[in-house]
């Protein structure tokens, strides 16, 4: 057996997909056909790490490892900052079995956060430490990223949308004010206009309790190129299920139909199903007898 055959042989597994999962998927698909939105977009995990520990807040001067900026390269300059209300930190990039990982140590809290870096992506990272109720501290790493070769405008929308998605559940006044202060500090330090603008705009969205729909999808799924980014302020729409028709943030021609469920308590709208606009799909939506808002 040669090497190639050995690898193929080694990758053959004697395990099958669990029948109960197959049944569950098909059952849910059936419900979806009946107009019941079952799919909750599980993107919160996509772009951040969060760790919570109990501790006391410490106010010490922050320091940032300069090597990091030398390592990260892309069409858009990468930047990674730590805003943590003053905790002393060290940032390093290290080799983890052939992959580059970013490592942030909150020295006084003895907390380390890390995540893999991709050479094909441009990331903007923001590390924050926020003290919540009862002295609970939240160590946050919020990441917005775009693929190599994408524009600064892409990263602007990724920051604005992903950061909003991440921060909007933090509604307690004290936590929120710390987050807004962190975003402001980061904006003041940003040396790229689009990063500063994104941070200021997402702060305003949060401060004004806007209800936002945000989706960011690879365009090739619908036979396009690049990515489709949707960002819509839905603050004026009533609570409940409805259908909306919107365009991507770049293009007045590319229309999509979303079925959404506006929960009065949530600022980030994430119960959605959507598809590219077509007369056929539009007719399907009409049959659902839900209010339709054309927001193009």
């Amino acid at each position: 057996m040669n090497n190639e055959e050995m690898i193929r042989e080694a990758l053959k597994l004697n395990i099958d997909a669990p029948e109960e999962i197959n049944e569950k998927v098909l059952r849910n698909a059936k419900h979806k056909n009946q107009g019941v939105v079952f799919f909750k977009v599980a993107t919160l995990a996509a772009s951040f790490c969060i760790m919570t520990i109990v501790g006391t807040g410490l106010i010490v001067k922050a320091s940032t490892g300069k090597r990091l900026i030398e390592y990260l390269r892309g069409l858009i300059d990468n930047r990674s900052y730590v805003y943590e209300n003053g905790t002393d930190t060290i940032m390093t990039v290290y080799d983890n079995n052939g992959e580059k990982w970013e490592h942030v140590e909150y020295l006084d809290d003895e907390v380390t956060m890390s995540h893999p870096l991709s050479e094909n992506e441009t990331e903007y990272n923001l590390y924050l430490k926020v003290t919540g109720e009862n002295g609970m501290e939240h160590f946050m790493n919020v990441t917005a990223k775009v693929n190599e070769g994408q524009s600064s405008e892409d990263l602007y929308w990724a920051i604005r949308g992903d950061f909003y998605r991440f921060f909007s559940p933090y509604t307690a006044a004290d936590e929120k004010s710390q987050i807004l202060a962190g975003l402001k500090e980061a904006a003041d330090n940003a040396d790229k206009d689009f990063i500063r603008d994104a941070l200021i705009d997402v702060s305003a969205d949060l401060e004004n309790n806007r209800r936002i729909l945000y989706e960011d999808w690879p365009a090739d799924i619908w036979g396009g190129e690049g990515r489709y980014i949707f960002f819509e302020d839905l603050s004026d729409l009533p609570v409940g299920k409805c259908i909306i028709i919107i365009n991507t943030v770049y293009d007045d021609e590319d229309s999509f139909i979303f079925e959404i469920n506006i929960d009065g308590n949530q600022l980030y709208v994430n119960d959605v199903s959507f598809n590219k606009y077509s007369e056929e799909y539009y007719q399907e939506q009409l049959e659902k007898n839900l209010p339709i808002y054309d927001l193009r």
Binding site: I15, P18, A29, F39
Partner: peptide, 29 residues
């Protein structure tokens, strides 16, 4: 597809999650 998810994750528990999420997403799209 399940075995592919297993290769990616290295354990049954994660493969179950990934397989399910993948099929949901494929259908949703």
């Amino acid at each position: 597809i399940y075995q592919f998810c297993y290769h990616l994750t290295g354990c049954r528990e994660d493969a179950d999650d990934l397989y399910q999420e993948t099929l949901f997403k494929a259908y949703e799209i």
